[in-house]
Simulated assay, not measured.
Amino acid sequence: MFAGSMVALITPMSENGNVDYKSLEKLVNYHIASGTKAIISMGTTGECATLKRNEHINVVLKTIELAMGRIPVIAGTGSNVTEDAISLTKQFQNKDIAGCLTITPYYNCPTQEGLYQHFKKIAESTDLPQILYNVPSRTGCDLLPQTVARLAKIKNIVALKEATGNLTRVSQIQELVSKQFILLSGDDRSGLDFMQLGGKGIVSVTANIAAREMADLCTYAIQGDFVSARNLNKHLRLLHKYLFIESNPIPVKWVCQYLGLIATDTLRLPLISLTNINQQIIKKALQSTELLKIYSSSRNTSLVCNS
């Protein structure tokens, strides 16, 4: 279940800042049609930091409803308050959720033992599969391989989303965990290299706009056809780079709107829309791929706009 191209889904919003559920339905159908293997709802890219708790829960539940069992949905349930993370996790018990993605506690910078106790307590509060999420650039907190190894012994902690971009981590962790423990890349730019070293998939921002391409890339990698995977990845390199030209999800949300996947690129403060200068840079990156041609064709066939 936790393998291949897994999209870190944006949360579309209307101009007044409310969640745009019509565009969310379009996105869910787009990813199902494109071969995405799972949807991560309410992760970093989904703007979990600026949605209220009831909105967070409703977006996940609506995504499950829209998916109708056609694609696994994974809920972002992390917090820097352990009891809050437990409370949020329990909201999705018995809700047809595939698992939970739990970020390292941000801002309060716990020790490695504190991290272990945090994730252990969350896992023991539920039987839902747990995916650890390590992204020190955003949290100021690094989950080290030795701590991952300790946590991997807990029955329902089944995977790690490693978003450091540090490829040496793959072999370091593999040496310490069982073969059943799943390693996922959380960094599009190094994701293919991560998979060649033994990772099972990519939790992808790029997949928001290049879902079929990322699905095919990961399929090639899983099959061991890294020649085809690298040929495909060449066309996506500029997107991997420039989708982070400003803080995620600012750029990818703008591109989704530009390509007609969502109605507006509305974000909530303190995030603001992509600058005009960077819009031009990303347009050039899009021109280096076949995406503009694909989306033009998709509009004619109503795959994107009316699915």
Score class of each variant (00 low, 15 high):
residue 221 A to S: 04
residue 232 L to E: 12
residue 193 D to H: 13
residue 137 S to P: 08
residue 113 E to G: 06
residue 76 G to D: 01
residue 237 R to H: 15
residue 203 V to G: 00
residue 159 A to E: 01
residue 4 G to W: 00
residue 36 T to H: 05
residue 235 H to Q: 15
residue 32 I to S: 08
residue 190 S to H: 13
residue 27 L to G: 00
residue 307 S to V: 12
residue 6 M to I: 12
residue 232 L to K: 11
residue 25 E to C: 10
residue 244 F to K: 06
residue 228 S to N: 11
residue 47 E to W: 01
residue 123 A to N: 02
residue 169 R to I: 06
residue 250 I to R: 01
residue 95 K to R: 07
residue 163 A to T: 03
residue 54 N to G: 04
residue 201 G to E: 01
residue 171 S to I: 15
residue 204 S to W: 03
residue 172 Q to S: 11
residue 215 A to V: 07
residue 118 H to E: 07
residue 131 I to W: 02
residue 298 S to C: 14
residue 83 E to Y: 14
residue 39 I to S: 01
residue 63 T to N: 05
residue 220 Y to A: 06
residue 21 Y to F: 15
residue 3 A to N: 10
residue 121 K to P: 14
residue 66 L to Y: 07
residue 178 S to W: 04
residue 214 M to H: 12
residue 91 Q to M: 09
residue 271 L to A: 06
residue 184 L to S: 04
residue 216 D to V: 08
residue 108 N to L: 11
residue 116 Y to C: 11
residue 191 G to E: 02
residue 84 D to Y: 15
residue 196 Q to S: 10
residue 294 I to N: 11
residue 36 T to N: 09
residue 49 A to S: 15
residue 288 S to H: 11
residue 65 E to S: 06
residue 164 T to Y: 08
residue 19 V to H: 01
residue 286 L to E: 02
residue 40 I to Q: 00
residue 243 L to K: 06
residue 246 E to P: 04
residue 172 Q to M: 09
residue 235 H to C: 15
residue 226 F to T: 03
residue 139 T to M: 12
residue 223 Q to I: 10
residue 205 V to E: 04
residue 90 K to I: 10
residue 204 S to Q: 08
residue 267 L to I: 04
residue 235 H to K: 15
residue 105 P to C: 11
residue 38 A to W: 00
residue 218 C to T: 07
residue 111 T to D: 14
residue 57 I to C: 01
